[in-house]
Design a protein around this nucleic acid. Structure first.
Lengths: 198, 198
DNA sequence: GTCTATACAATGATAGAC
DNA sequence: GTCTATCATTGTATAGAC
């Protein structure tokens, strides 16, 4: 209970450094050597805390996924009152989620991993990515149901909403223009909530 | 004029093999050695035709992009008559484009490259990817204008349409479920063309 | 727990014979 | 144009001292 706060240790530094490198280069192309050099720890330290690259990747990708999911839920959850009008209306929360400013040119920290062969070939890592999208889709679907959509429509539109964001990242990176994501989101929102209060 | 047909040579075999490997593993993770072994040619042959991996990648990615663009245009172009009713209506052609059956679990052969650091760090390769999406977006935008949308709305909805397809690939790969792409597309089409003739 | 040194395979390419 | 042999570098660890 006393030592619990002092955890800005080597292990944590390795994880945050790995998160940063994974986000910018992907998991496959990032070597353990790069991580230890960028974090300033020695060879032995990394392999003490994380015997293999897989172990480091699970820790770093897991942390990234938790952070991303937390951010999405902040957008999507109402005030819990259940009262229409008690918080922001459900459809507006979905609009808030898709329109949230994003670093479009960097790509989605999680979505990009679906093209990372080192991730998809590793059962443990792939499961972390799968769980992220399953939970994200469930949250968006629930919010759309709250907005009054029937189950099938809610499910399909939730998939479309998340896909527009993911595809927006792809378009922004491909064209080198972060407005490409904004255009995609605008096009979708105009259809989903034509009267959206902006 | 005589020799022009006999071109099922070593060079072409290398390109098609590279296309296949790039599509399944990405460009970065595919080694020249894998390409020459899979195509059955010798070390020297590959490096004779393509002095560097970059040269091989430009040829293979360029071919893939041309094929993808040709397929998209087949969906999007009318019969050229300009007559409403002379061919399939413009909005239906956009619906045809987004609903075309795709190997969702494999990911988009071009879109995946935006997460491939080896591609994005190479000016020549990145330009090929950029050109693909610029031309694809232009084609979808033009078709939506033909459908009667004003310029801004056509541009935004075209971005949304292409993003839904790209994001559909991401969702399908992430969840391991090819229906995820179909759900995203269905959700989008229900909004874009509620009365779509299916 | 952390450090330096080392091992061993794969990558991307070159050399030079045929 | 194609082949075999070779090479320098990087990736992923392991060994063993402190």
């Amino acid at each position: 209970m006393v030592a619990a706060m002092v955890t800005t240790g080597t292990r944590e530094r390795l994880v945050t450094t790995a998160q940063r490198l994974f986000a910018s280069q992907g998991v496959g192309p990032t070597s353990p050597r790069q991580v230890l050099e960028a974090s300033g720890v020695g060879q032995g330290s990394l392999y003490h805390h994380f015997p293999t690259k897989h172990d480091l990747a699970v820790a770093a990708v897991g942390a990234t996924v938790e952070q991303a999911l937390t951010a999405a839920r902040r957008d999507l959850e109402g005030d819990g009152s259940g009262d229409p009008g008690g918080g922001v209306e459900a459809l507006d929360r979905v609009v808030a989620y898709v329109t949230r400013p994003r670093e479009a040119l960097a790509g989605c920290k999680v979505g990009r991993l679906t093209s990372d062969q080192a991730v998809m070939d590793d059962d443990g890592l792939r499961d972390v990515v799968t769980a992220y999208f399953v939970r994200l889709l469930a949250a968006v679907t629930a919010t759309l149901r709250e907005a009054g959509l029937p189950a099938d429509a809610a499910r399909d539109r939730a998939h479309a909403a998340v896909a527009v964001v993911q595809g927006g990242y792809v378009l922004a990176r491909a064209t080198g223009d972060e407005d490409a994501m904004r255009a995609a989101v605008r096009g979708f929102v105009a259809l989903l909530a034509p009267e959206a209060r902006r």
